[in-house]
């Protein structure tokens, strides 16, 4: 269900904190059944990716805020993974209702989908728990968006694709968190998606070729 103003206002950070604190670190039974319904079961690659990205995230976090806060980094990531599994399940449930299909093999074996969804979940946790705990360390590195994109080596345009579905799928987001994701969205649309290595340019080219119209839009280099 789309986010209604009342629901967003009613939700408090405590709600999401309580939900994440009691959530499991592993995929739920429901989520496992979605994995089992896939032509190619994605579970192993999902678990492997969560582990690999976790190592990188904790390393970069400790580098950014100091080894003394390394434990905070692993806590943030842990909660991010819980949110990632929770939102994935909710997304699949609504897609199942919308499309009345049960086999999401292609989507669930898509590395970019998972990396984007995980990045969004970790970004929400980072924004939720804020920076006050490690604010005192003059780390110089700003961990707010788009820091997570560099850590996960993720293109902004791919991150952008999950934002709206994430907001729809996670009913416990607060107004501030939705506003935060919306600011990320705008920053991507206004600048980050137009950087020269963005996948956007290939997509524009492909759609132009499909339309068969003259390709006047693309400049050789993005300005």
């Amino acid at each position: 269900p789309p986010q209604t103003p009342v629901r967003a206002v009613m939700n408090t950070i405590q709600q999401l904190v309580m939900i994440l604190n009691s959530a499991s670190d592993q995929p739920s039974e429901n989520l496992n059944s979605y994995f089992n319904n896939c032509t190619v079961n994605p579970k192993e690659s999902i678990l492997k990716r969560v582990e690999n990205i976790g190592r990188i995230f904790k390393e970069k976090f400790a580098e950014a805020v100091g080894q003394g806060c390394a434990e905070i980094g692993s806590q943030r990531y842990k909660l991010g993974v819980r949110l990632y599994y929770r939102v994935m399940e909710s997304m699949l449930k609504s897609e199942e209702e919308r499309l009345s299909i049960h086999n999401f093999s292609k989507l669930l074996n898509d590395k970019i989908f998972h990396t984007s969804l995980l990045a969004c979940a970790v970004e929400v946790v980072m924004a939720t728990y804020g920076r006050n705990t490690y604010q005192s360390h003059d780390s110089g590195t700003d961990l707010s968006f788009p820091w997570i994109l560099n850590v996960l080596d993720l293109k902004a345009f791919d991150f952008y694709k999950v934002i709206e579905s994430f907001i729809k799928a996670e009913a416990s987001l607060t107004r501030e968190m939705i506003k935060h994701l919306e600011r990320c969205e705008h920053r991507i649309m206004e600048s980050l998606a137009w950087q020269s290595d963005s996948p956007l340019f290939d997509l524009i080219k492909q759609s132009k070729e499909r339309e068969g119209s003259v390709d006047h839009l693309l400049e050789p280099t993005s300005t």
């Binding site: 789309p2 986010q3 103003p5 967003a8 997304m91 609504s94 897609e95 919308r98 499309l99 999401f104 292609k106 989507l107 898509d110 970019i112 989908f113 694709k161 999950v162 709206e164 579905s165 907001i167 729809k168 939705i178 506003k179 994701l181 919306e182």
Partner: peptide, 21 residues
């Protein structure tokens, strides 16, 4: 400020966005 603007149309969802339809 006003609420989040849901831009996805009918028949557009995460599956379409990741070319899995």
């Amino acid at each position: 400020g006003q609420d989040y603007h849901f831009g996805l149309e009918e028949g557009e969802g995460i599956r379409e966005l990741f070319d899995c339809d």
